[in-house]
Simulated assay, not measured.
Amino acid sequence: MHEASKRLAIPLLACIAGSIGSVQAAEIVAERIATEHLELRLERIAEGLEHPWSVIMLPDGRFLVSERPGRLALVEEDGSISHLDGLPEISARTQGGLLDVTLHPRYGDGEHDWIYFTWSKPDGSQTATALGRARLDDTRLSDLETLFEQERPADPGRHYGSRLAWLPDGTLLMSIGDRGSPPRAQDGRDHAGSILRLTETGGVPEDNPFVGDDGTLDEIFTLGNRNAQGLVVTEAGEAWATEHGPLGGDELNRLIGGENYGWPEVSLGRSYVSRQPVGEDSLPGMRDPVHVFEDRFAPSGLTQVTSSMFREWQGNLLAGGLQSEQLHRLALDGDELVDSEVVLDGQIGRIRDVYQGHDGAIYLINDDPQGNLYRLRPVD
């Protein structure tokens, strides 16, 4: 499933799987990286991306990479980069900018050739996390549509969240951070600090958990999520997220519709000011994380390994880290973490996104003013 496209729970058309031509030319960064089960090669296939945020592989083997300053880069097979016109107005301040990008699950059939993306949308002196879609038309985006924007915009710069993932029923999950105001994550009348579930046109699915609840907005799927920047739907149709704590307390959560994940009343993180615990370890009615990362992992980017290229990692999650500069492999048995391993540790710097391409390789981008697109695959 994830060999078709990033964070897609529904495969692209079967013809896509064999549509790649030549493999991108690559510069070897690390010839051999030893892990518990595999020896890996790390390659750089494109460079000069400004604070890249998300990567997706097109059916023809090219890549789209969002750059936080407000550009969408098209990366050719030879590593050359061009930028697409046609984006909306974007507020690129601090953590804001052009953020996640994904394809419609049926991309490639002509009718559903939509590219979905999120961005920080200007609203006077404030900004809102917004979702849009457009079609790729040679060197530009066309048929641009704004599908959704959060209630209550906030001062620009903080906690937009903004990862996307498709569920098997064709609905779309979208994370929105607490926008730097923790109490908003417990306010059901506020999209901030939540995971949303939307239709492909940005509407409300009739079976959303809070439809008919006057105290909670219809779009909300889960509450109490501080700032989820890793989001994936597995082959089994389960939704998982990695989200930032404050100082520590970074979490891996299995997302269950209607649940409250506690922020800021429950957290193992510490206050930036007092260095004291922010909240309780656990509270009734609030769902505990499956895993809390040690130290300051600062998660961003999450994918499931389904590629036969990584047979020993089948079903595992790969989670990227910013502050830690690490890539973690996470093995799960139901809702229990049964094994973990640090796969990368500083080789590419701050890991912003992790993605399995439909060629079976793992692709990563690093958060840097001169960022790169990397490929990770087993040594032949």
Rank of each mutant, 00 (worst) to 15 (best):
L330F: 02
P289H: 05
D155E: 15
K6C: 04
R7I: 02
A17C: 05
S54W: 07
G157H: 09
V278F: 03
D367P: 03
L373P: 00
L74K: 09
D100S: 14
L8Y: 00
D190V: 08
R275D: 15
P59A: 12
D335G: 07
A34F: 05
G86M: 09
L196C: 10
R375G: 02
D353A: 12
S54H: 06
P168K: 10
P105G: 10
D138P: 06
H83Y: 15
S22R: 15
I220A: 09
A26Y: 03
F221D: 00
R350D: 12
G320M: 06
D353S: 14
G61K: 07
G202I: 08
L327Y: 08
V338W: 13
L283H: 06
G212I: 10
P264K: 14
H358S: 10
L196V: 04
L141M: 12
A25Q: 14
G124A: 14
H244I: 13
A192V: 07
S120P: 10
G371V: 10
S274G: 08
L164F: 05
G349L: 08
Y107E: 14
Y116N: 07
L12C: 10
L223Y: 01
W114G: 10
E341I: 05
L144F: 04
L49Q: 13
F221P: 00
L172K: 01
Y261H: 15
I351T: 08
T199R: 06
H37G: 12
R189W: 05
T35E: 01
E145M: 13
S267M: 11
W114M: 11
Q356R: 12
I20H: 14
T216N: 10
G161F: 07
A298L: 02
I90R: 04
V379K: 07
V65Q: 04
G212E: 01
P277E: 13
R226T: 04
D333G: 09
R296F: 03
E77P: 00
G257T: 06
E243R: 05
L317F: 12
S162K: 02
S308E: 13
G262F: 02
T118H: 01
A26S: 14
K121N: 11
A25T: 15
S142L: 05
V204W: 07
C15M: 00
E243A: 03
L283K: 15
